[in-house]
Design a protein around this nucleic acid. Structure first.
Lengths: 220, 220
DNA sequence: TCTTGTTCTGACCGTATGGTCAAGTTGAGT
DNA sequence: ACTCAACTTGACCATACGGTCAGAACAAGA
């Protein structure tokens, strides 16, 4: 289930290019990438280990050597996107005020929506189905994270740096809006004439979202 | 949950009102309700006809008598939600300005998120997976609907009734934010101490969302 | 009552899936 | 060269699923 790295890994003494450990890491990575795609496109129930194996380029039995069960593999995929999002919080914390912090957070989340749309979809699917495998994360890490940012937002409000808005509903709006461009990317693409948003359109989108939100919280 | 009242257990004789046609309508309705729940909770791939049949209170073979295939049943569920959302557009059109129109649209969409969370989830899941069964709706009905509202928003902007914002990104933000309370309801509930939003909280949520958005578009 | 079309249902079927296993192959340490 | 753990793989299995079918039960018109 968890990462190995447990018992005796002989020496761990690095020498040339990562031999065994590096190969394992690379294999796991390609599996995770394939799994993310398949889970995003088919959902957990619709995804098959065979398809993931094919996409990763190895036999199904070998896939089970790396990830014992479908659930274990799925869990890793979900944890991956969650950690990516948590990192995006750094820009939030480092900011000196709401315009900078929230603006940078929107930029960061939008970038992730563009670079990791499948991860976002897997997360959305997981939560929509009642978070059967990451409920504990919601109750611990996510709750702590959210409470922490809410506190920052309240401080900004107390200091008169932004309008009085409920911090939680503001955060929900940020999550909803930014992730929408990943989760509903297909719908947006269809309404965009069947073509993905161009670089210019993406920049315009970020500016538009930031414009509305920042003005909405009295910072603009 | 709650056993349907359609029970056609031998007895139940009724003949006066539209006996056969009415019974069929009632049975279909209870099936659709069960299907919406199961598809929302498990996704298309994870849902089973057996579970839907059990929840609707009839044998699987009988379920197949009403809906020949899983796809046919799923399609009906998706179409149902889509039509409910289209109706919510009425308040948009009837408005004389953005504050009234967009405010009322937010209220309407939020109400639907509360009353039909499962339908919203099924739609989200469908779109996330590339809209395999309702792509034609996206390209026709939804596109027309969206273009129409965009035109209205542009007129409001031209008349100086609201700030210059891209109509499409504004609409995406409205969809994302309002549907988030249905699709990610479980996450919100968890962050709310594991309890569903109360009536008062729901009202506060609507006010908060409207506050940010309306201020964000220069109407407030 | 008889007839006819609709509705209901248990039993069944072919297929696909997640997962296992035993027999290999490989390659780093000695 | 030898050893042994790490890795690879085709074949296999039990199960569960979507869907079918033949016939029973039922309603309603004649």
């Amino acid at each position: 289930m968890r990462d190995d790295e447990s018992g005796k890994r002989s020496k761990n003494g690095r020498s040339g290019s990562g031999s065994r450990a590096e190969a394992r890491r690379a294999t796991e990575e390609s599996i995770l990438k394939a799994a993310e795609t398949v889970f995003a496109e088919a959902g957990f129930g619709g995804a098959t280990m065979q398809l993931i194996a094919d996409m990763a380029g190895l036999p199904k039995a070998n896939l089970h050597y790396y990830f014992a069960t479908k659930e274990a593999l799925y869990r890793r995929v979900v944890e991956q996107i969650f950690n990516i999002w948590l990192q995006a919080a750094d820009v939030f914390d480092a900011a000196s005020g709401p315009a900078e912090g929230i603006g940078a957070y929107i930029d960061a989340k939008m970038e992730i929506s563009r670079s990791h749309p499948n991860g976002s979809k897997v997360w959305a699917s997981e939560v929509m189905h009642g978070a059967p495998v990451i409920q504990d994360y919601l109750e611990t890490t996510l709750r702590d994270w959210t409470d922490g940012r809410a506190k920052i937002i309240r401080r900004w409000i107390a200091q008169g740096q932004m309008a009085e808005v409920d911090p939680y509903h503001l955060l929900y709006m940020l999550w909803a809006t930014t992730q929408h461009y990943a989760d509903f990317g297909h719908q947006i693409e269809t309404l965009n004439g069947g073509k993905p948003l161009s670089d210019a359109q993406w920049e315009a989108t970020k500016a538009s979202v930031k414009g509305i939100v920042l003005r909405g919280i009295g910072v603009a």
